[in-house]
Amino acid sequence: MSETPLEGAAIRGAVDLSSLANRGAQHAPQKAPGQGQQQAAPATVESLVLDGTDQTVESFVELSMQVPVLVDLWAEWCGPCKQLTPVLEKVVTDLGGKVVLMKVDVDANPQLAQVFQAQSIPTVGVLLGGRPMQVFQGAVPEAQVREVLEQVLQIAAQNGITGSVTVSGATQNDEAAEPEPEPLPPLHQEAHDAVERGDFETAIAAYDKAIAQNPNDSDARAARAQVRLLVRVNGASLDEVRQAAASEPNSVEAQLAVADLDISGGHIDDAFDRLLTLFPTLDDDGKNTVRERLLELFEVVGSADTRVTKARARLSGLLF
């Protein structure tokens, strides 16, 4: 399984899966002539979007013998995850049973996170014929998610995995009766569409307008902070950033860069401790810069998170 660093290519879209086709073919079971064209009876699942755990993964491995199982590795505190997961759910639903989505909370399921080598989240993998593969990292636009799944389905077909699943109890009338989701406010929708296109600058500008119109719009503030983080880590090399921070321990910019990557990779306490330890050593301008970044990272993680509550209290003690 490949390890994709948190670089611009990983944030913008999918890695090329073509190399996995040959690797999968080497391990594919031998089939009698014509066997690849036969399809097993569709499996029945409760939903096309299911929660997976370290304890239930075996059932998904079995399911992956019939259809690809897309794996969404996420966490409650992860802002980019909240942007990507609805996109994954939409694309999988549109495929009508050709793919199943398994959602994995990495905080509660560290073994699965390790299996897919999730060094940062969101990470998206796939179970195919019982084999785990990591396919991309970061929040990517819907069009590129669809490209990934087209490649996954091609690889699945080459390995004789051409089945489908049905949803138990689902009918067309049931689907029609589902309530439409509440529409987003216009500026939020504009920003959402821009993120799906990978146009982060336009998304930030739209959220700026929303906040200007309503300074108490906490959703816009949190979403803007998440997109800003995506922009800052776009193209960043983890090794280079850490080396720069180690060689320049008093550099505000170098330490901020590491904190951003730590947040995006799930190392929340490390990021906050780094900046809060640096804070007392700085002049007034440096302190203001770090304070503003910390407040923005608090928005990314979420004000209700206990790690944010602890770090906010520590910051208050340093300020006063």
Rank of each mutant, 00 (worst) to 15 (best):
M1Q: 11
E3F: 12
L6N: 05
G8R: 11
A14W: 00
A14S: 13
R23K: 13
G24W: 14
P29D: 06
P29G: 04
Q30D: 13
P33L: 07
G34S: 10
Q35V: 08
G36R: 09
Q38D: 12
Q38C: 06
A40K: 09
A41Y: 08
V45G: 07
L48M: 08
V49L: 08
T53D: 07
Q55R: 12
Q55G: 11
S59E: 12
S59C: 04
V61G: 07
E62A: 14
D72A: 07
A75T: 07
P80R: 00
C81V: 03
K82R: 13
L88S: 04
T93Q: 14
T93C: 08
G96D: 15
G97Q: 04
V106M: 09
D107S: 10
P110D: 13
L112G: 01
L112D: 02
A113H: 05
A113Y: 03
Q114Y: 06
V115F: 04
I121K: 02
G125E: 01
P132A: 09
P132R: 02
M133N: 10
M133C: 09
Q134P: 02
F136H: 15
V140R: 04
P141W: 01
E142D: 10
A143S: 15
Q144V: 10
Q144P: 02
E147D: 15
L149P: 03
A157Y: 09
Q158F: 00
G160T: 00
S164A: 14
V165Y: 00
V167K: 04
S168V: 06
E175Q: 12
A177G: 12
P179Y: 10
P179D: 13
E190Y: 06
E190M: 11
H192W: 13
H192P: 00
E196T: 08
R197Y: 03
G198E: 01
T202G: 04
D208S: 12
D208E: 14
A210S: 14
A210M: 06
A212E: 15
D217H: 06
D217Y: 03
S218R: 08
R224T: 02
R224P: 03
V227Y: 01
V227F: 02
R228N: 15
L229H: 06
L230V: 05
A236E: 13
V241M: 00
V252Q: 00
L261H: 04
I263R: 01
I263D: 06
S264D: 10
D270K: 11
D270M: 07
D273E: 15
T277P: 05
T277K: 13
T281S: 15
D283F: 12
D284F: 13
G286S: 11
R293S: 15
V301F: 01
S303F: 14
L319K: 08
